[in-house]
Nucleic acid binder design. Structure first.
Ligand SMILES: [Mn+2]
Ligand SMILES: [Mn+2]
Ligand SMILES: [Zn+2]
Ligand SMILES: [Zn+2]
Lengths: 145, 145
DNA sequence: TAAACTATTTATAACAATTATAATCTAATA
DNA sequence: TATTAGATTATAATTGTTATAAATAGTTTA
């Protein structure tokens, strides 16, 4: 599963003429295997054993490259640092306001809202962003003593 | 209309024991009258004629105070600076990817999505965030030569 | 193959939004 | 009036991210 994701991702890089360097391979591998939504710094730190001389700029640069070819999505939350999501299928996120956990969930696209917004504002709609905030089961459990 | 909004806002401050200083009065007035979604720096610059010595920290501090008592909502968009919305009624935003214009629009709350997300993830849902991205009529017009 | 060119990485400096700190000022209270 | 708490100011610090330039590695051309 993750192997085929990695293979597909490497193919995408080849097709778009982006060189596959050891650093890029490792960042992609980490994104796919982590099954989470790491920050650039988390990726940087987790790879410093393997690449002691890797620059943090390399992580940022390559995440930007991956975003540009559609391999990852960047998730921005206010002041904190961006998180990166290996782009498998369309999905939304629900975020715990207590511990910051981000969980995927699927829901059909919000076509109706997009349509109405376009109608009342005259905008040409491209896409939307939606996420839900709340308290995760772990944190809710801890609240009850 | 804006007068009553200002009056209500000042009442809210009184009720919550927040002193009404000239700076706070001016920031609130600006937020209500601007009918837009200014950044802290825009507010700061627009008031420097009236308050030549006002510190930018004062703007940030007071916007935080206003947010904490529920008078304004902070809108965060990735790397750029936060924008602030005087909190009238619940509404969503549609944003032009070309010029950055932010336009309000109304839509009933997305209760169904919240409910499903809660069901499949076990989260206790608090609220959600949704905005739509596209190209505004002005920018779409310019594209056609 | 050698030379030239291009992409990538590294190290480091710069940037920009925001926050922290400490001193000063203002207003409320005793 | 003296005391206290709250607010503002000026400035420094922080932090995530980007820019820059030199070094390295890979690719293409002669
Ligand atoms: Mn995800
Ligand atoms: Mn608004
Ligand atoms: Zn949690
Ligand atoms: Zn526009």
């Amino acid at each position: 599963m993750t192997q085929s994701h990695l293979k597909e991702a490497l193919d995408t890089l080849k097709e778009t003429g982006v060189r596959i360097t050891p650093q890029r391979h490792a960042i992609l591998e980490y994104l796919i295997n982590s099954m989470s939504h790491p920050t650039a710094d988390e990726i940087y730190k987790s790879l410093e054993g393997k690449f002691p001389n890797m620059s943090v700029a390399t992580v940022y640069n390559n995440l930007r490259v991956f975003r540009e070819v559609g391999l990852v999505k960047e998730l921005t939350y206010g002041d904190a640092s961006s998180r990166f999501d290996f782009n498998t299928s369309e999905h939304y996120h629900i975020i715990c306001e207590n511990c910051g956990k981000i969980v995927d969930f699927h829901y059909p696209g919000l076509d109706e809202v997009e349509h109405l917004a376009s109608h009342v504002t005259g905008f040409k709609v491209k896409h939307h962003r939606m996420e839900i905030y709340g308290v995760c089961p772990d944190c809710a459990g801890k609240e009850v003593h």
